[in-house]
C-alpha cells in the first residue's frame, strides 16, 4: 500500500513561507494542506489556484480543524515562540525559520516545554546545507588542518542604504539588525564547526537604521579555547546576494570557504586530503535535488525535517542549537551597549 504523505501546515506566507510550502508540497513524502496567515494575500490566491490548501487565520484554528504532521513557522520573529509553543503542546514537529526569538528570555518557555515534550524540532539555519559549507565541515572534522589557530568569518549583502520599512527593521518584532538576521547564519556555522562560544566582545553601528545595527563586529572565544572574529553588514555595496565567507588558519594549512567554493591548502597530506592546494568550485560541489526553489539548501533542509518526523529523531540544527546562537547574539548586544566589554554566554 502506498504510504500516505505527511501533512504540512505553513505559518506565515511571506517569501520564506512560500519557498518552503512549494518544496514540502512537491517532495514525495509530504504535501501542504494548510496555511495560516492573517493577511488574505497571497494566501487566498494560493487557495484559489490550489484548492487542496486550506487557509486559516490562526494556528489554533488550523490545529482544531486539520490533521497536521508537521509545521513550518515562517512568521515574523516576534511570533516564533508562541507559534512553536502551540505546536509542542499539540505534539506537532516543527521547523522554525531563524532566528529563534527576540531574545533568549522570550525563548526560555519553549526550551522548557521541549524538555518536557521533545517533539522533533529544527531551526532554519540553512547555511549548514550549502554544499561548500558541508564540505568544509568534513575537512575540519578530518583534522587535516592540524591544531586550529584562529578563525574569521564575514557576511555581507547589499540590502539597506536608507531606513528600512517592514517588520525586519522594527526591533520589537525582529529582535535586532544584521547580526540577528544574517550574522546569525555565520555564528551558527562557526558553532557547528567549533562548538559552543564562551565569551564575546562586540561593537555595533547603526547608520541607516534606528534601534537596530547595520554593521557589527564580534570577537569571540570558544569553549575549546579557539579564538576568532566575525564581521557582518547588510549595508555594503556590490553584494547582490548574501555572501558568507569563513577563513580558518591551522598549523597544517589554511581553509577558505565561501558560498560556492572551498579552497584548501595543506603543508602535509592527511588521509584523503593531498599536500598543497585543493580547490573545489561551485560546479564540482553541485549535485541535483528533487526540486530546486531558491537554492538546493532549502530542499536539503526540508528533507532533513521530513526525515526527523518520520524517524521521530532530532535534527541538525535543532531549536537547542538555535538557543545557543540566540544567547550569543544577546551577549553581543549586551557587550556593544557596554563599549565592547567582555560578556560571558550564560
Amino acid at each position: 500500500m502506498k504510504q500516505e504523505k505527511l501533512k504540512i501546515g505553513i505559518i506565515g506566507l511571506g517569501r520564506m513561507g512560500l519557498v518552503h510550502a512549494a518544496i514540502f508540497n512537491s517532495l514525495p513524502e509530504s504535501e501542504v494542506v494548510a496555511v495560516v496567515d492573517p493577511a488574505l494575500f497571497p494566501a487566498k490566491p494560493l487557495q484559489m489556484m490550489n484548492p487542496k490548501i486550506k487557509v486559516f487565520k490562526s494556528i489554533d484554528k488550523m490545529l482544531k480543524k486539520m490533521h497536521i504532521d508537521g509545521v513550518l513557522i515562517a512568521s515574523p520573529v516576534g511570533f516564533h515562540i508562541e507559534n512553536a509553543l502551540e505546536c509542542v503542546r499539540n505534539n506537532i514537529p516543527f521547523l522554525m525559520e531563524k532566528p529563534l526569538a527576540l531574545n533568549a528570555e522570550q525563548a526560555q518557555p519553549l526550551i522548557d516545554e521541549l524538555k518536557k515534550n521533545p517533539v522533533p524540532n529544527m531551526i532554519g539555519y540553512m547555511a549548514r546545507n550549502i554544499d561548500s559549507f558541508q564540505e568544509g565541515k568534513k575537512i575540519i572534522d578530518s583534522g587535516a588542518l592540524g591544531k586550529i589557530i584562529n578563525v574569521k568569518g564575514t557576511v555581507y549583502v547589499s540590502q539597506l542604504f536608507k531606513q528600512g520599512k517592514g517588520w525586519r527593521y522594527d526591533p520589537k518584532i525582529s529582535g535586532g539588525g544584521v547580526l540577528e538576521s544574517q550574522g546569525s547564519h555565520l555564528l551558527d556555522l562557526l558553532y557547528w564547526y567549533f562548538g559552543p562560544v564562551k565569551k564575546v566582545n562586540a561593537d555595533i553601528l547603526s547608520v541607516y537604521s534606528k534601534g537596530i545595527e547595520d554593521f557589527s563586529h564580534v570577537v569571540m572565544d570558544f569553549e575549546s579555547g579557539l579564538k576568532g572574529w566575525i564581521d557582518a553588514s547588510w549595508s555594503v555595496r556590490f553584494k547582490r546576494k548574501m555572501e558568507l565567507k569563513i577563513d580558518i588558519l591551522g598549523e597544517n594549512g589554511n581553509l577558505a570557504i565561501s558560498d560556492d567554493s572551498v579552497d584548501l591548502f595543506l603543508d602535509s597530506p592527511v588521509g584523503d586530503y593531498k599536500k598543497g592546494k585543493t580547490y573545489l568550485s561551485a560546479n564540482e560541489l553541485f549535485s541535483g535535488v528533487h526540486i530546486d526553489i531558491s537554492g538546493a539548501k532549502f530542499t536539503y533542509q526540508d528533507q532533513e525535517f521530513i526525515r526527523a518526523i518520520m524517524e521521530k529523531d532530532s535534527t541538525s540544527p535543532s531549536i537547542h542549537d538555535g538557543f545557543h546562537i540566540q544567547k550569543i547574539v544577546d551577549s553581543c548586544y549586551e557587550s556593544a551597549s557596554n563599549d565592547g566589554a567582555p560578556v560571558f554566554i550564560k
Partner: peptide, 15 residues
C-alpha cells in the same frame, strides 16, 4: 524560473 518553480511546487499549475 523564480515564479515558474514556485507555482510548480505549490501546485498552481493552471497559472
Amino acid at each position: 524560473d523564480g515564479l515558474v518553480d514556485l507555482a510548480l511546487g505549490l501546485g498552481c499549475d493552471e497559472a
